[in-house]
Design a protein around this nucleic acid. Structure first.
Lengths: 340, 340
DNA sequence: ATGTGGTGTGAGAGCGCTCTCATTTAGGGT
DNA sequence: ACCCTAAATGAGAGCGCTCTCACACCACAT
């Protein structure tokens, strides 16, 4: 184990109490902002804390209070995917924004392939009071275990939302994708293809459903579908397959901005002009939508606000707020740029 | 505070001990893999643990052992910057790779503007056994406090590396940038400009120093310098300034791949062909170097390996390994692609 | 029989905090 | 003067674990 390179020991509550000439309990009250301490005592205790540069020990505190004041963000994806997609950046930003207003801290658990087990142990070991889960797949069974242990809020409708007792924040992905695809129909496109997200994720499934629904309503073919994995490279490959199979498409609905960057690359490479030859509508309205040489028309979802809402929901759950709604469905809107 | 939505209480060591008919101490030994327990006892205790689905409580453990088995990665940048730059993704990946082999967990602290204080409190509250710091700036005084509290390993030479008792992993940024700039000289460019990183960061300063050194050796002008902030947008603006001030440049050394994407955008926009009109050499060899339409010639640094090395160094420090070297300088190499 | 030296196990004292009570103190009311 | 109440404080029992000892036990040698 090792003796740890010698460090000056941190001051304890006990020491502060001695310094201030009061009991441990009183110092604890001051630290926790209890109203029932005489003002002058508060002052002297605060001074003692200052003098000793005291910081309460988290382990002791959480052992005694059975709370950790921290929450986890569980992301069942590998690092590359997590860092590669600006969508995650936005969500995390929203989450931290809300958390910064509280005194909870965030624990990022990007649980790729193997350490799924390790992550669960970490969570169950009482390291956090609650969890936020984003980008979960059908196969992610660990979620059920998690929910029996602590409050959980999902980003995106959970795959097993049968009981309706899950808490989650989402957009109406079907309506969102419908607005995007409808736009393609409205501008006169008739042979519309799509690059989908993973079909083991609600966001992937629902956006595909929206696509189909619009085309069926319009009496158009719905066979130009290729699946991808929410990565640029995966979308590029899918786009190649699609162009090979359906060379006649005049429009493309891509289930995320990041994937659209991949698709646009292939389109350029094959000499298909956007939007003239092929109009493209993407999804997310993340920075990826405007980083390229051509601005993307995309279904905008308030990713950052969703992160904020998730954290807010969880915090209220942790505060035993009885009034919290189980689901928070946020609005999407179509943002028109150059690609369609 | 709230009573926490009722959850089945987690089993404790005590309960496992009762279940297995041994003492707490023995269960503790089994859990911690002590060799001095009779094999048959190990079996029965393990069975009891399994039966109760026991997971040790981290708070209690760390209170008693004075260790947390987790380390922090402190990044004094805002979220957007952190998520925007693939360099960070690579480093984090390397860190987690090393940590996954151990039983330490990572705590990501992306400490933007305000919560610097909050971060320090978190760290000093004994939440982690040690810290990794990347992307630190001259003004980041909190680092000194940190070092007096726990072992710290830096990614990149610390700004105050006076005492030489800091631990860090880095590349020779001066030599690295020299190799890149020298290449520009070697291919016959004579009016070479640079977009630098922030000059309050060693990586920014050193890469600029390398730039200057090569040009001075070659008897070329070193005035075509514009400062940026390691973001694509910042670099784009700097490139515009530079082209305005020195329209005659025939080569550009950009201090990071991400910044180079911004520079290339401006170059394209202004109709300067790369590499014909302006040859570009970047730095990092991150995915950003190959994601664009033109492959970047770039100074490759082993970002992921550096993350791995940082974590490795810290873990050895935590294990009281006396033999750890204070600094680990890793090699760079020039990767030739199309941009120069 | 007695001693000697392991080796596995249990008892028990904390780790630094919170929180329930009991106790003290001050302030009315009669 | 008295009692009664309310407010401020302290004493002390844990929270679930680790870790130091002391002890019991079993060879094996004397």
């Amino acid at each position: 184990m090792g003796v740890r390179n010698a460090r000056p020991p941190q001051p304890t509550l006990e020491m502060v109490a001695a310094e201030a000439g009061v009991s441990r309990a009183t110092v604890s009250r001051v630290v926790n902002g209890s109203p029932k301490v005489r003002p002058e005592v508060v002052v002297s205790v605060t001074a003692a804390i200052e003098r000793l540069n005291y910081v309460p020990n988290r382990a002791a505190r959480s052992l005694a209070s059975r709370q950790t004041q921290s929450v986890a963000l569980v992301v069942p994806e590998d690092m590359t995917k997590f860092f590669g997609d600006p969508y995650f950046a936005a969500v995390v930003q929203g989450i931290t924004q809300r958390l910064d207003e509280s005194d909870y801290t965030l624990n990022l658990l990007v649980a790729s392939t193997d350490p799924r087990h390790k992550t669960m142990r970490y969570l169950r070991a009482g390291n956090v009071d609650g969890a936020l889960v984003i980008s979960h797949h059908t196969g992610d069974s660990f979620v059920a275990d998690l929910e029996s242990t602590m409050p959980v809020v999902f980003g995106g409708r959970p795959t097993n939302d049968s009981g309706a007792n899950n808490y989650f924040v989402d957009v109406d992905n079907i309506a969102g994708s419908m607005s995007g695809v409808q736009h393609l129909v409205d501008i006169g496109r008739r042979r519309i293809g799509t690059i989908t997200g993973p079909v083991d994720m609600p966001a992937g499934i629902d956006r595909l459903t929206g696509f189909r629904r619009v085309l069926e309503n319009a009496g158009l073919a719905t066979d130009a579908v290729e699946h991808a994995d929410f990565t640029a490279a995966g979308a590029a490959a899918a786009t190649r397959r699609l162009l090979e199979r359906c060379p006649d498409i005049d429009a493309l609905f891509v289930a995320s901005d990041l994937m659209a960057t991949g698709a646009l690359g292939v389109l350029a490479e094959q000499g298909r002009a956007v939007p003239r030859d092929i109009a493209v509508v993407a999804y997310d309205d993340s920075p990826a939508a405007i980083s390229g040489s051509i601005g993307m028309t995309t279904v905008s979802q308030p990713s950052k606000e969703m992160g904020f809402a998730m954290a807010d929901l969880l915090l209220r759950l942790l505060a035993d707020d009885e009034t919290v709604p189980h689901r928070n469905i946020m609005p999407t809107s179509l943002v028109l740029r150059e690609s369609a």
